[in-house]
Structure formats: structure tokens, C-alpha cells
Amino acid sequence: MPLTPDDRRQLYRFMCLSRAVEDAAWALAGQGRLVGRLYTSHGQEAIPVGAAYALRPDDVIAPMYRDMGMHLVRGVAPVEVFAQYMGKRGSSNAGKDSGLHIGDMARGIVGMISVLPDSLPVAVGVALAFKLRREPRVALTSFGEGAASTGAFHEAVNMAAVMKVPVVLVCENNGWALSTPPEREFATAAIVDRAPAYGIPGVQVDGNDVEAVHAAVAEAAARARAGGGPTLIECLTMRMRGHSIIDPADYVPRAQLDAWAARDPLAGQRERLAAAGLWDDAREAALQAELRAEVDAAVHAAEAMEDPLPGDVHTGVFAA
């Protein structure tokens, strides 16, 4: 189904919301107002937004820490994000874990862990359940090009291919696995080159083009839903900040950053919308004002929430 003008504006809005939330989080972290480290998706917002927007509400995502946009598209409110980042008692992890590890099966979100490739087999298992129950649902997981070097990646993709489960595998190749560039992670030209070796379709897309990501995921999800099994999608993008807020990333060449800065995914979508007559300066000003207010309110609401109590440490190890 082609994107409507509304959809196209929504994609842009979600990317802008993601950037606004993460800009605010970056500032809060610098002021010591967050718990734990901060990892953001600056520069690669098009992938989580485009991917999640291509799914249905009853599909399940197993996102990673650079997928703020996926959470927002799934309905996680900015106040929930800030509460999570602040480790508040009423947050998803209630202060027991930190970062973007929000999990909520009611909204189809598997909470990630810091061992990033572990979400791959879990997503395969979610998809396996859908297949066994003959439900027309899809699981989607995302991972970096660095995580693709692990054994868990291989085991999961191979198992997904053999079992032909409805899973969409989104690689966000952002050029840096902490400080390690792709040529030190794999010897092929691209991650997507592996798809034929697993016997599954693979496609490489411009990860800074939200509509291209959306189209690729929509096609892969439709194939999965129809029984066609998994697809590997490699989205090329660039990590525009350090690995985490404490990483100055001085190993990244300036020219690489400059080249990608000229291809900012938000600016790209704004230009596409403007060229189609769907966007103008007045809309932009209104959107930015709205997002600023929304984010400010969310930060204040989150800060007003209760911190965990020492006794909470004991609760929830086991389900009753």
C-alpha cells in the first residue's frame, strides 16, 4: 500500500520527535540527571521509524538501543522514555535496568539486553510461535553490523531460514561498532551479501531515506506474512554521535561525518515533503514548537515521578 501524504508527514514527525527526545536526553545526561549511560540514534532515525511504521499493531518488534523511533511509533510516550532513562519506579524497568531496554508485550515490544545479537534468536522464536499458530503476524528485529559478527546472528538467521518463520531482520549498518569499522568486522563488501548463503532474500537500502526503509520492510513483512520466510535488510547509515555519551568518537574521520551530515534523514524527508507540496515553513515551525512543548512536559513529568525504593531490589526475580 503506497504511503498517503499523512503517512509521509507522520514519518517525518516521528523522526523529529525521536531527535527531540534524544537531544533532550543528551542534555539531561550531561547534567547528570539520567541513570546509566546514554546511547542515541542521531543520524539513523529513518531506520527505526521507517521499519516500525511498516508493521501492523499486532506484529512484534525486538529493537535495539538505537531504535528510539521504533518505540515512539509503537506508542511509547516521551514521558515513558524519560522515566526509563531516569530509572523511575514507575518506568518500564522500574530502575532495575537502564537505557532503552523498554519491554511491553502488550505493545509488542521485546525488551532488549546489552548483548545486542540476543534479540535475533528471540525474534525468530516469536515468529516461530506465529507460524505454529498460523497467525498472520510478523516479528522484526534490528541489530548493528557489529552484532552480525557474533555466533548468535548466524544461528538465528540460519534457524529462521530453515524454519521459514515470518521474521524481518534489519541490519543498521552505521559504520562503527563502537570504534571498529566494517572492514574489521567482515571481509565481504556488505552484510546483505550473506543473505544468499542462508537461502533468504536480502536487500540493501539507503538507511537515511525513511521511505526507502519503509518500502523495504513493508515488502519483507508482506512476504513473511504470506509464508515466504525471513528477509535480511541492510540499511546503510552513519552513527553521528559517539557510541555512547561518554565516547568522544575521535577515531571517526571528520570527512565521513561531514559527508553524512549532508544526508541527514530528517532534512531529506523534509525536502521530499516540500517538493511534493506537503510541507512548508509554517508547518515546520508549528511542529518544532509542538515537539519542544511535548518534550519539555515529558521531562518534567518524568522528573516528578518517584525513585525506586531500596526494598524494590528484591521484587520480581521470579514471576508468581
Binding site: V122, G125, V126
Partner: peptide
Amino acid sequence: GAATGAAL
């Protein structure tokens, strides 16, 4: 991992 996903 997959058994975990199915359990979820």
C-alpha cells in the same frame, strides 16, 4: 533464544 521468544 527462540524458545524464549515463543514463550513471550
